[in-house]
């Protein structure tokens, strides 16, 4: 257990954490703002990477590839949204259906292969695990992801302050009241799901570049990691009075903390195969805490 091993691994963990932080902001939009648990993200966290890598392999520039990845996520969100609102399928089930369907679509996108690699030396990747150390500052992956994150937060801060953004927040807060105020809550739910999955797919496009490949299993358990980041942010920063932009920032930091802790746990000698189980247990515990606290205090459980 050489402490140096841990220290050299931390920058990479921070970069991954930031990318998953972007993904977690997508989850935050559905889970916290819209009050929907959207499992579509387990599919879109693969779709974005698949689209981005395949387009880059075909010679498209990285910017266009990421944009199309975002749009692919938006489309997936639209499908879940229509299943949930127009067709009246419960949100969780609608997400599961989209996610399952996406598995086949993702394979199609990747030319029926489970994995598509991209060579960092031959293609002009925006970020890569090779760009963490010994690169000029402006090419540093951590910096680039951080800048993208700040741009995203700025856009979202503006958007959720607009009329339509406020309507989406109102829908999550009180759908009955929203309809009484003339908001078409079906439309706002669909819009929220589209935006959320677009962001997740964008994060997926970044993650695939970082790793140097798109993988059919990239999204497995993504919702749990996203929720973990949201919950960590709530537990650690929840007491701080903050505006919406900082809340989003904290969610992204939640992703970073998750990956740093993961790195420490691995360094302590834990089997990497057990990680998903540990993640699930941690998220379950933190989701249960508010409920158990309320019970202990004798108040109405409000989970």
């Amino acid at each position: 257990m050489d402490i140096l091993n841990l220290i050299t691994a931390l920058p990479g963990a921070a970069a991954q954490g930031l990318i998953w932080g972007i993904m977690a902001i997508g989850v935050y939009i559905t889970y916290k703002l819209l009050d929907l648990a959207d499992l579509t993200v387990d599919g879109t966290m693969c779709t974005g990477g698949a689209v981005c890598i395949m387009m880059m392999l075909k010679g498209y520039p990285v910017g266009i590839s990421l944009l199309v990845a975002f749009l692919a996520g938006v489309l997936a969100g639209l499908v879940t949204g229509v299943l949930h609102t127009t067709l009246g399928i419960p949100a969780i089930l609608a997400g599961i259906l989209s996610q399952l369907g996406l598995y086949s679509i993702n394979l199609r996108i990747m030319d029926n292969k489970a994995n598509q690699a991209i060579n960092v030396d031959k293609y002009d990747l925006l970020i890569s695990l090779r760009y963490i150390k010994n690169v000029p500052v402006y090419k540093n992956t951590i910096l680039i992801v951080a800048v993208l994150l700040l741009i995203l937060i700025t856009i979202l801060y503006w958007f959720f302050g607009t009329e339509i953004g406020s309507a989406i927040r109102a829908t999550g807060s009180n759908p009955n009241m929203s309809r009484a105020q003339g908001i078409n809550t079906d439309v706002t739910k669909i819009l929220g799901l589209m935006l959320s999955n677009g962001i997740v797919a964008f994060a997926s496009g970044l993650y695939a570049q970082y790793q140097g490949f798109a993988d059919i299993n990239a999204g497995r358990g993504a919702i749990v990691i996203g929720l973990a980041a949201v919950i960590i942010a709530e537990v650690i920063f929840g007491k701080i009075q903050s505006n919406f932009a900082f809340k989003l920032m904290f969610v992204a930091l939640g992703g970073v903390i998750y990956y740093l802790v993961l790195q420490v746990v691995l360094w302590l000698g834990l089997n990497a195969n057990d990680l998903k189980l540990i993640s699930a247990v941690i998220v379950a515990v933190f989701l249960a805490i508010p409920h158990l606290n309320a019970k202990r205090k004798g108040g109405a459980p409000n989970a």
């Binding site: 958007f159 339509i164 406020s166 927040r169 109102a170 807060s173 929203s178 105020q181 003339g182």
Partner: peptide, 29 residues
């Protein structure tokens, strides 16, 4: 039932102010 608890007083009023109007990308309040 009648208000959005997670939003501010002025935000709730702004939502009501826009009842019957098309909501776009103009500033919410």
């Amino acid at each position: 039932t009648g208000t959005a608890a997670g939003m501010q007083i002025e935000e709730n009023l702004a939502l009501a102010q826009r009842r019957g109007k098309i909501r776009g990308l103009r500033i919410g309040i």
